[in-house]
């Protein structure tokens, strides 16, 4: 799922400085699960910004709403009135939701309230980790189910670099070395021989290097 983190309040204050009526709009799916932009976080941010406005003696007014998914026209159309009444909307959705709003409401100022951070999961409550880079060309079948693109700081495809120590990554000692994990997994699967063959250059054109990506299912089009 998409994981996001709320922006620092100072940055949000700067973004909204020119506006008076501000709608704080949450999204009820991924960002809710990542504790960044659900109804609860909308309430917390609204309260924080009201405090900030009161401290700065400015006359900003904040309203709150949360839709099920900001990345669907139908859901954001359902609160069109609230959006229209606002001078600016702080979207606590991922970048997709922010852009959906901007596209649907061309004359409305739409501002991001979170930093969309990665695709991942919670390995324990409150601890979310990256698991997928959406590179467009999955190699997990070759790497024992551990992704070296998302989980190796250098995207290595042919084994761990010299910084792998005691199973951890040199870039962050709290991060597992993806290649140590791959080595251990393939060992358990009896497939260590896979690590001897050269994995050739990756086709990055399927990643963002190929330009904005698009999936079209002709069979589904209306």
């Amino acid at each position: 799922m998409i994981k996001a983190k709320q922006k620092p309040i100072a940055e949000i204050k700067t973004l909204i400085a020119p506006y008076r009526n501000i709608l704080i709009l949450g999204c009820g799916t991924c960002v809710t699960i990542s504790f960044a932009g659900g109804e609860k976080e909308v309430g917390m941010l609204a309260s924080s910004l009201r405090i900030a406005a009161a401290m700065d003696k400015n006359a900003q007014l904040f309203t709150e709403a949360t839709v099920q998914r900001q990345c669907e026209w139908e859901f954001i159309d359902a609160i069109a009135d609230q959006i229209q009444k606002a001078d600016a909307v702080i979207s606590l959705a991922c970048g997709i939701g922010v852009q959906a709003l901007a596209e649907r409401y061309p004359d409305k100022v739409i501002l991001p309230g979170v930093n969309t951070t990665f695709l991942g999961m919670a390995i324990e409550h409150g601890v979310m980790v990256e698991r997928c880079r959406a590179c467009g060309d999955c190699i997990l079948g070759l790497t024992g189910g551990v992704c070296p693109i998302a989980r190796c700081a250098k995207n290595l495809l042919n084994g761990p670099c010299g910084g792998s120590q005691r199973g951890k990554c040199e870039v962050n000692p709290e991060t597992d070395c993806a290649w140590q994990l791959i080595y251990d997994r393939l060992g358990k699967l009896g497939q260590l021989d896979r690590l001897s063959s050269l994995m050739t250059y990756k086709d990055w054109s399927k990643d963002y290097d190929g330009g904005p990506r698009k999936i079209v299912r002709e069979d589904l089009k209306l």
Binding site: P160, Q165, L195
Partner: peptide, 18 residues
């Protein structure tokens, strides 16, 4: 280059061979 002291130690000779 190769770092004989990095982990996993058992894999390092094979990586060199690769």
């Amino acid at each position: 280059a190769e770092n004989p002291f990095a982990d996993p130690f058992d894999y390092r000779p094979y990586r060199l061979a690769k």
